[in-house]
Design a binder for these strands. Structure first.
Length: 478
RNA sequence: GUCCCCAUCGUCUAGCCAGGUCCAGGACACAGGCCUUUCACGCCUGCGACAGGGGUUCAAAUCCCCUUGGGGACGCCA
């Protein structure tokens, strides 16, 4: 169901979006999708995209995670215009804002113990209610003490509404909200608070984030109001689910963005897939990066959660491999070749190889594996294949072919075809009877690109050598 | 439990806001076929959905209500 959607940001105002990952692990596909939506929207509107690292939880934040996130964003080609900001560098700003709230009576100190709070929550749940802070310290006018936290004084009545770009209006009863903590006992600020302060001070006017944040938004709206700041436009995108329709997690398989890189996916394909999951542009399935920037708008984001489908991503990857010019694929293929022990190859040779493999590879890894026969000095014949095709009977056509190719003036597909035709005529054999043995001779196996393509890419010298050793192989067996 | 959100083929989705052109279109997957020097690619065909029930209307996938189902959130995590 689609409802009237509108962008709250004034038309003249430059769109400023942000992506705020918390460095407590790698960048997963769900996070990447949110980053993508923000980045794409900023690019589409010629606005600005800000990167902010949310590391107020010093315990769980790690340098490794920060690096992993940068690495993943870089691979995806998501570049930011501002930042990265680190919240851990901004504690003095937060302190200042907390003081403002304290001074204006929008916040107060609370000395309730975590243990008591926990007990209260349990009881509330058991009694069938929503666990909330009971307001014990709300009017106590406590001053700062050892282990006192700072709570936001939320309104007791009325409603707070999110005018969501994607979901429409979402209304919350303020009585559902409670006096949430904005500064911990040790003085460090908490999530809902720092997000608001950051978004205000960084000029963020468009907040696109996961559905799971909907419940945080009324709290944040209240904070904006208490701070006297204008609200940004909010857009909550539905989540990505696993095949069992629950929140995507490790048990659903690969989640890390870079894992897809390592499996041989093109970032363009991952991007295409991730954006298309939950967003649509008519019937179009395939998008290049530039097309995405050109066509992406918030209006076409759907409201329901989507299931992550590896199969479809794989198919899309195959499409991107197919349509990317072979020359451009070279640098992407190199790491996989290297893994297979192949290095320092000529670019023209690689381009030719890719040209024969791109329509039959679903991943770069697959392509690198399928390309191996091109690099071997001596061909190792697959036992079954050799037995079936490298028989004495093929010695004659094989030698004829060798002669034909040797005397070829112009070494191209046309000349090769003529050479084969000549052999067919002289031996009375069908192409199939000749091609399979030749394929085994050239590649070692029975599955490969077209026979003419292979010979052309391998070149005269290499092809001849392989053909000759196959002939020798047959003779030796006799 | 409470609050919030969502609901079209197995999956991603078009159509829904501005009801008729929809016995619902595309894609992935699957099945069959064609092409063919193998494998692919490509092409063709098939399979397969408006969650259920009430309204409103001449007419509902589209608007309203209820039910059911699913998801998310309820931290001194973000």
């Amino acid at each position: 169901m689609k409802s009237k959607k509108y962008i709250k940001v004034k038309l003249m105002e430059k769109i400023i979006t942000r992506f705020p990952p918390s460095p407590t692990g790698y960048l997963h596909v769900g996070g990447a999708r949110t980053a993508l939506f923000n980045w794409l929207y900023a690019r589409h509107t010629k606005g600005k995209f800000v990167l902010r690292i949310e590391d107020t939880d010093v315990q769980r934040s790690t340098k490794e995670s920060v690096d992993a996130i940068f690495e993943a964003l870089e691979w995806l080609g998501i570049e930011w215009d501002d930042g990265p900001y680190f919240q851990s560098d901004r504690f003095s700003i937060y302190e200042e804002y907390i003081q403002k709230l304290l001074d204006s009576g929008h916040a107060y100190y609370c000395s309730c113990s975590p243990e008591r709070l926990e007990e209260m929550r349990k009881q509330a749940m058991a009694a069938g209610g929503k666990p909330k802070y009971d307001g014990t310290c709300r009017e106590k006018k406590l001053s700062k003490g050892e282990n006192t936290v700072v709570r936001f004084k939320a309104p007791l009545a009325g409603t707070t509404v999110i005018e969501d770009i994607i979901k429409g209006n979402i209304v919350f009863q303020n009585s559902e909200l409670d006096d949430f903590i904005i500064a911990r006992g040790d003085g460090t600020p908490t999530y809902n608070f720092v997000v608001v302060v950051d978004d205000i001070t960084m000029g963020i006017n468009t907040v696109i984030r996961g559905d799971d944040h909907v419940n945080n938004t009324p709290k944040q709206i209240l904070l904006y109001k208490a701070l006297g700041s204008a609200l940004p436009a909010f857009g909550h995108v539905p989540m990505v689910l696993g095949s069992d329709r629950t929140r995507l997690s490790k048990r659903h398989g690969a989640m890390s963005v870079t894992a897809y890189r390592d499996m041989g996916y093109l970032s363009d394909a991952l991007i295409n897939y991730l954006v298309r999951l939950g967003w649509s542009y008519g019937d179009q399935e395939f998008f290049t990066r530039d097309e995405l920037i050109e066509k992406f708008t918030l209006e076409n984001i759907g409201k329901s959660a989507g299931v992550f489908d590896q199969e479809k991503l794989l198919a899309l990857n195959a499409d991107h491999i197919k349509t990317t010019p072979p020359k451009k694929l070279i640098p992407h293929l190199l790491p996989f070749l290297k893994e297979n022990g192949i290095e320092n190859q000529d670019d023209d040779y690689l381009e030719g190889i890719i040209n024969t493999l791109n329509i039959r590879s679903k991943t770069l890894k697959e392509m690198a594996d399928a390309a191996m026969f091109y690099f071997r000095d001596t061909i190792l014949y697959d036992e079954k294949a050799a037995k079936k095709f490298l028989k004495p009977a093929v010695l004659e056509p094989l030698e004829l072919l060798i002669g034909q190719i040797e005397s070829l003036d112009v070494f191209d597909e046309k000349g090769l075809e003529d050479a084969f035709k000549e052999v067919m005529e002289r031996t009375g054999l069908k192409l199939g009877k000749i091609a399979q043995p030749v394929r085994v001779a050239l590649t070692g196996g029975t599955v490969s690109p077209g026979i003419f393509e292979i010979i052309e890419v391998l070149g005269k010298e290499r092809s001849l050598a392989r053909l000759k050793s196959a002939a020798q192989f047959i003779r030796d067996k006799k």
